[in-house]
């Protein structure tokens, strides 16, 4: 087994197992520990620039990746016209850069604002560093190895599907440049850290709020039955 297989063929399964198993355990048996851990109370101004940029940047960029995973052919068809390719790439790069700047602001804020520092744990820093590296390697990839949306469906989509369908083909990544490999491994690292960190709040996005009634009334008596 070489490094490539270990990092991209074996490690993803360790990461995914942790992500699913530990998250499920935590949601069921340690619900109190699940929280977005907002620090807006302690500092507002820098959080506004950091949090908004990082969250929206990451959400949209991740949706782009997901789109390429689910509809690779659609993406290629879209890219068939150069203008549309440029548009997509510029948008993606812009969002990635936005997320990068946002993450940097958040990390700098966490280190330099005394109140926020006092409320931080080691994991808070680790998560921010990993996200910063992820955004950085992503932006570098987009800049140096153009055009991502063009080669992603050919290389990354089959690789990701091979992992998800339990027939891993890490050799697909063997010849890729360092920054792309780094980006992929960093992703699996984030997946592994996910259940042990505040990242777990991602799966608690309260979409149910759109549908639930305004008021919630609970009968303790009836609950008990």
């Amino acid at each position: 087994m070489n490094w490539n297989t270990l990092l991209f063929g074996v490690f993803p399964y360790i990461a995914l197992t942790l992500a699913v198993g530990v998250t499920a355990y935590r949601m069921v048996y340690r619900p109190f520990s699940v929280s977005a851990q907002s620090s807006q109370l302690l500092e507002q101004k820098r959080l506004f620039f950091g949090s908004t940029a990082m969250h929206w940047g990451l959400v949209l960029v991740l949706l782009g990746h997901l789109l390429a995973l689910l509809l690779p052919k659609g993406l290629l068809l879209w890219n068939a016209v150069p203008v549309r390719l440029y548009l997509l790439e510029i948008t993606g790069l812009g969002l990635g850069f936005w997320a990068l700047v946002g993450t940097y602001v958040l990390l700098a804020r966490r280190i330099s604002v005394a109140r926020v520092r006092a409320a931080s744990t080691g994991m808070d820093y680790l998560v921010l560093v990993l996200i910063l590296l992820s955004a950085l390697s992503g932006v570098l990839t987009a800049l140096f190895y153009r055009y991502g949306s063009f080669w992603f469906p050919a290389v990354m989509t089959p690789y990701l599907w091979s992992v998800l369908t339990l027939q891993p083909r890490p050799e697909l990544l063997l010849d890729l440049p360092f920054w792309i490999k780094f980006h992929v491994f960093n992703f699996w690292l984030l997946v592994a850290v996910f259940p042990f960190s505040r990242l777990v709040h991602v799966i608690t996005v309260p979409l149910g709020y759109l549908l639930r009634p305004w008021q919630i009334v609970v009968w303790v008596r009836k609950l008990a039955r």
Binding site: P31, F32, V34, S35, A36, Q37, S38, Q40, L41, H201, T204, P206, G208, Y209, R212, Q215, I216, V217, V218, W219, V220, R221
Partner: peptide, 25 residues
Amino acid sequence: PSGAIYKRAEDGVVLVNENKCKAWR
């Protein structure tokens, strides 16, 4: 957004379910 706060029907006390609260504040 999480639906973590509720009113007890028996006596009207409004409580936060700390297990459901996700810090959306």
